[in-house]
Design a protein around this nucleic acid. Structure first.
Lengths: 152, 152
DNA sequence: TAAGAATCCATGATATCCCATAAATATCCA
DNA sequence: TGGATATTTATGGGATATCATGGATTCTTA
């Protein structure tokens, strides 16, 4: 199992610690770096989470932009420049930095949302809204999954 | 045999456990992940069930989208965020999460309905109603099965 | 030496594993 | 072919391990 699936709501304690769901940890077990990489999402008030090994692929994908384009520069800055690498403690928890908590408006709880090869961290009630929005978009815009390469 | 066929009604015990029909398990025997992936159906008050490999395929296809595009995000949220991955215990049972039981209104029993490459889980009496509805629709609208992909 | 981090330990809840039973099915052998 | 014996299944219950969580203790380092 290597995919991040399902949604888990865990508690953020007074120290900013939160358990990464056990199944997410299992999906990260084969990594050399035992932990996650987080950065603030561009499109939403949430946090993007990746395995450390996936960051290399992200970099490759960014190279498909023109090397000196404004877009490439912006993305690289906001992703690599702002990402944080958070190791698990002995009990599978990470400590969320203050700016992350603030950006995603995380309170006592946060939602870990599986997105396949990555995941997101949300304020639970904000995610509820996001969930219906996503479902609505898929339906109304008729978004489908392309069979092979070449999708939008 | 790799298809889910026929309908089986099994008991949901006090712990929320239910046996996956043996023939369904046989259809999943070649998988690396020994278990099923479930999510709430959009069209009906039932649960959709898939082999985990199906999710892996979806993930591969999603990789054709730009990583942070709105479409990718919407699809990943509504597909992966809302699914759950349930492993078999030693006796071929799974534990149904509370929100799944609630959504499909499952009581003491549930019906596993083979649908070919996927299956559905229903409240048995709700499924009886659904069955006659489906048969009626097929008859009145003269629905048929197209020869290959991309039919009518 | 005080503030913040990292590590360690305790605990209840829950999932996982293991075994027992009974019914249904399959298998075997005279 | 008949009938006795194995296997497989679905189901229930209890023991055990895991997980999320909170708090305490040790370690850094400013």
């Amino acid at each position: 199992m290597t995919l991040f699936l399902s949604t888990f709501i865990n508690k953020v304690d007074r120290k900013g610690r939160v358990s990464v769901p056990a199944s997410f940890r299992a999906a990260l077990a084969d990594q050399t770096f035992q932990g996650v990489v987080l950065f603030r999402s561009h499109g939403h008030a949430c946090i993007e989470g990746f395995p450390q090994s996936f960051m290399a692929e992200l970099s490759d994908r960014l190279d498909n932009f023109d090397l000196f384009s404004a877009d490439q520069d912006d993305l690289a800055t906001s992703i690599f420049g702002e990402s944080v690498q958070l190791p698990f403690d002995g009990d599978g928890r990470i400590i969320l930095p203050a700016n992350i908590i603030e950006y995603a408006d995380l309170g006592e709880q946060c939602a870990f949302v599986g997105m396949g090869r990555k995941f997101q961290i949300w304020n639970p009630s904000a995610f509820e809204a996001r969930k219906s929005e996503a479902r609505e978009n898929v339906k109304s815009r008729g978004v489908t999954i392309p069979k092979t390469a070449g999708g939008a």
